[in-house]
Every structure is written in C-alpha cells, then in structure tokens.
C-alpha cells in the first residue's frame, strides 16, 4: 500500500529542524528511522501532511561516553547498540537483539522508538530500568526530561509539536560496583512486539550487596513502566533466593496489563515475576563467577 500524499523536507541543521517544527506544528511528523511511522502511513493509519526527515542533521547518530553518563544520539540505530558494547551499560546490548528483526534494527532508531511511545517497545523498559532521561529541544528551549515523565499514554509523550528528541542520557553506574543487566522478551515470533518485556539491571559491590538496581516493564500498561517498588527492595541487600522471589512478586504487581489475545492479565503478571526472578538469579550467578575470577 501507498501512503497518502505528503510533502517532504530534509533539514541540514537542528535550527532548520526547529524552524520547520514550529512552522508546521501538528501537521508535521519527524521521520527518523521510519520503521514504525512508514508502516502506519502505508496502512493509512497515519497521514501527516509534512514529513521532516532529520536523517541529514549531523551529530544526531553519535554516542558519547563520559565518566558520568552515556549520551546516545536520537538517530542511533538499534543495530549499533547490538554490535557496539558499552561495558558499563550491558543492558543496552542485551536488549538490542530483541528489537523487531535484524533488518528493521538496521533502520530503526532509539529516539524514534521512544518518541513513538508504543507501550510494548523494548527500549522504553530498558531505559527506564537504567533511569535514563531524554533531551527535548526546540527554538525556545532545551529541557531534560526523565523518561518516566516522558511517557504520557499510548503513543503519547511529553514532546510538544515544536520539540525534537535529540539525545538519550543514561547515567553511569556507581564506580565501585559490578554492573549486570538482562532483557527478557516473551515474543510469539521474531519481529513481534513484546507480550511482556522485562529489563533487569543491578550493580553489586564486592560483598554482593546491591548498590543500584532498575527494573523496566514493556507491555504492562499504557506506557513503558519502571517497577520502582521492586527495584527499591534490592538496594542494600544481597541477592538471596528469598529476596529475589519477593522482588519478583512485587514487580509483578506493578503495572496494569490488559487481558488480550496475547495473554490474560494474570499471565502477564506471572511472566514479569518469572523473568525478574530469572534475571536476578542470573545476575547473582554472574556476580559469583566474576567475583571468583577476581579472587
């Protein structure tokens, strides 16, 4: 199928982009990787009058690691995070191979995915677990918005029509800890959106105490979610089987999943429980191996 007719503009700078967004407002849609937007346009579920292709704006596809954060350009393609390892952010490369399929990962971008705000998208869960923020920019202002404030509703974010998501900022883990991360996705086939997605990350000190932790959930509500209560229970404790079980149970109660063709509410909650449990158990095991090799 073919999209409805639209005008196309490809700005060369951020300033030009802001100008266009201001000028065209709601009628314009930003085209990043296009892997969600173009299919919707082909099915004529979306019909913007103007596409602003930011593909020619420089520096939007870079990744910059500093001691206190990893700054990921909005146009960073999923495949980059699949192939490039950022050692202090293992959850990113654990998540990337689960996104869509390999061909879609070659085009789709992290910023585009977040701005699309599908509640089942994988980056949302992972970046919430990592307590990431996004940089939103327009002519008028630059603002840093924590990801948990960014997602508003299904396909709806805090982005104003004149704003562009330029960068994702992931804070660095504590320096004196080992950091681990795993992403679990229940999908019905490659390319499927998550039935349930669970991102688990934790930093463990020398004696195995959790110093930092995050749990993100995909497809467990109208927006990607952070299981904050569950993650908080981990802080300051070792990963005992009892604690893992308790945390998993608490995580399963965070979120508000709907019963649908992909499973009942009860099923989805149980999947969160199972995956959080598996993720934390795996982290504990990896920590033991790492600790032994250090010793």
């Amino acid at each position: 199928m073919f999209p409805s007719a639209f005008s196309y503009v490809a700005p060369n700078t951020l300033d030009e982009t802001y100008e266009l967004l201001e000028q065209y407002g709601d009628d314009a849609k930003v085209l990043a990787g296009g892997q969600s937007l173009l299919p919707m346009m082909k099915l004529r579920l979306a019909a913007p009058g103007m596409l602003v292709d930011i593909g020619q704006v420089p520096h939007l596809a870079t990744q910059h690691e500093s001691p206190d954060a990893l700054r990921i350009g909005a146009l960073t393609r999923h495949a980059i995070l699949d192939s490039k390892q950022f050692d202090r952010y293992p959850l990113l490369s654990q998540t990337a191979p689960w996104i869509a399929d390999p061909l879609v990962r070659n085009r789709g971008t992290m910023g585009g995915s977040l701005a699309h705000a599908d509640p089942a998208a994988d980056w949302g869960a992972t970046l919430l677990a990592l307590k990431a923020s996004v940089q939103l920019a327009s002519h008028e202002r630059q603002r840093l918005v924590a990801l948990h404030d960014f997602f508003v509703d299904v396909y709806t974010t805090a982005l104003e029509p004149q704003e562009l998501l330029t960068e994702i900022i992931v804070p660095a883990p504590l320096a004196d800890s080992l950091v681990f991360g795993h992403y679990f996705k229940l999908e019905r086939k490659v390319g499927d959106f998550a039935v349930v997605g669970v991102a688990v990350t934790a930093s463990l000190t020398d004696d195995g105490t959790v110093s930092e932790a995050g749990i993100g959930l995909a497809a467990m509500g109208s927006i990607p979610l952070a299981a904050k209560k569950a993650a908080a229970l981990l802080i300051g404790h070792r990963l005992t089987p009892e604690l893992i079980k308790e945390v998993a149970q608490v995580a399963a109660q965070e979120g508000d999943p709907q019963s649908d063709r992909r499973g009942s509410e009860e099923y989805k909650r149980s999947m969160v429980r199972v995956y959080v449990q598996r993720g934390l158990a795996q982290i504990h095991q990896e920590w033991q191996v790492a600790n032994q090799s250090i010793a």
Binding site: V190, G191, D192, R261
Partner: peptide
C-alpha cells in the same frame, strides 16, 4: 503453534496482516 485467523464478537478480523497472523521465521 502460531497461525490463526481469529475474530472478535463483531466479526472484526484480528489477524489481517503478518504482524498478527504469525508465520514462522528461521528462528522459530
């Protein structure tokens, strides 16, 4: 394991494309 054209009670087709009508890839 995967392929089914299901309908809701109003007769809406719930699997009219390859996003919902699930055919196996090389991985499955």
């Amino acid at each position: 394991f995967m392929q089914e054209i299901a309908f809701d009670e109003d007769g809406n087709n719930l699997a009219p494309n390859f996003m919902e009508y699930l055919v196996p890839t090389a991985v499955e």
